[in-house]
Nucleic acid binder design. Sequence first.
RNA 1: UGGGGUGUCGCCAAGCGGUAAGGCACGGGACUUUGACUCCCGCAUGCGUAGGUUCAAAUCCUGCCACCCCAGCCA
Length: 573
Amino acid sequence: MSDVNSRPADLPADATNEPVAGHFIHDEIIRDLAAGGRFAGQQVHTRFPPEPNGYLHIGHAKAIVINFSTAEKFQGLCNLRMDDTNPSKEDTEYVDSIKEDIHWLGYDWEDRFYYASDYFPQMYEFACRLIEKNLAYVCELTSEQIRQTRGTLTTPGSESPWRDRPAAESLDLFHRMRAGEFPDGAMTLRARIDMSSGNMNMRDPVIYRISRANHHRTGDRWCIYPMYDFAHPIEDAMEGITHSLCSLEFEDHRPLYDWIIDHIDGPARPRQIEFARLNLTHTVMSKRRLRYLVEEKIVDGWDDPRLPTLSGLRRRGFTPASVRSFCERIGVSKVNSTVDYAFLEHCLREDLNSTAQRVMAVIDPIRLIIDNYPEGKSETFEIENNPESPEDGTRTVTFSRELWIERDDFREEKFKGYFRLFPGQEVRLKTAYVIRCTGCDKDEQGQITAVHAEYDPATRGGNTPDGRRIKGTIHWVDTLNAIPAEVRLYDNLFSAADPDDSESQFIEHLNPESLTVRTGCQVEASLAGLTPPKAFQFLRLGYFCLDSKDSRPDQLVFNRSVSLRDSWSRSQK
RNA sequence: UGGGGUGUCGCCAAGCGGUAAGGCACGGGACUUUGACUCCCGCAUGCGUAGGUUCAAAUCCUGCCACCCCAGCCA
């Protein structure tokens, strides 16, 4: 490497004072911060502005991570703000879940928690100033008439007959709108911009409407409410936001955003930058679709472990670190994209591999009888809690003549590539002994009821003093103290990568096997009396967590967060 | 046929005129007391397309094509 003069050789590339770009938004911010830039010398200030009308999902997580991590990167601040300008759709019940989800993700807005409704008085004042400047007018067209006069994508709209009424008259009417003199929908306040603009948003957009809906915070103090396009830039300006990051569909609202900023003489001039929202394969993200699944009881509520809601992912066993890692690694761009669900799973496995305690559990148990092991005898073994993390220590498991093993770990006949139990075959019982399969018992129907084997006392601990190689190692649980449990196995909610394709109803793509409930599972005794939250790796099976809703200390219910990668079953397909 | 965007490997995504990073997925191999993990190897003579400028183009210019968003008193 050359250029040793520009930077001390022992410093990493980003150890200078110059911020290093992470994606195009950071590029823009670096430009804005540079000498002569739009925000030169200012502290970066972002915000996450959810509307409290639903639960947060992984798509929101992307936006949250972008906003909070951008602020962090530039040593700035990020606010949390409820964008509650439409009382007919919003409710305080969502506010708490939103805060909980963001905190769970690991972000904190300190004392900067705001409501758009906090600014209703200022917004009203700004609107009055706009009227006085003849930049807004009270329009008495009905919504139907407004629609008809808006024109189409290819033809200009026509001007409202109220467009040129005197400012004083508009102002008076606006005051009276606020005073409740007119019924809902009777009139609106419109920005006076350009009815022939190619940008529909600039065709005299409505910025205030009359609505007597009860607001979750301001009650019936107001009967007029600002529209998003008017409210949002003001909210940002009031909070001194520098960079207002939002999704692509607001791109053509930016001229209006800037128009508002330009004409209100607000306390700041924020800059809106848009990025592509997240789509994931095998699921749906729209509020409407999620609501449908919940209301039609296709899933078990907003926190169903199959849903991409943050509460669902949490219940499924996703860790905040894994979700954050996912959001950071998918990148930020302006390309409409759909990320493979497998990548989300990868991020979870990666986190859990290093942190999850290993434990033995048998989901589909069959009895293994070790015929040459003394009846009544029992011994104990120390097993590492996590081979990836020796400092996590060990735990004790008991061993006796009869064990539970996975039904799938026994075959009546050997077949190509299979190296678990079949008559004559040796396998290792994890950390216990090497055993040789001798056969099995069957009932009248021919169902296998038990597997028989003989153990080699010389292999205690699973070692082979004679050096012989044992290819297969299987997990097991002592029948003497195993704990019964329920295990819920999850798969994609939709079998199609894109359930929202245009040819069919998304509901037609539901995966009938998205949930498989297994009862009668047997888990090792160390799991007795457990309470959530706790994540485990069930050896050889996958990562599991206690179900936060249904698990009881005496009646354990586990959710499979994600299976282990399985090159064997993959090769069998 | 208006306006605003976007097109780099199956999926994300770097690249900012000097000769295509990385991750996921996939395939092969090594290792293995988890068929896990880890580690190797492979995976775009090509950057929507056609021209042009240049010694040199994914990067600059022009035309074309495809896809996404916009006609709520939703956000």
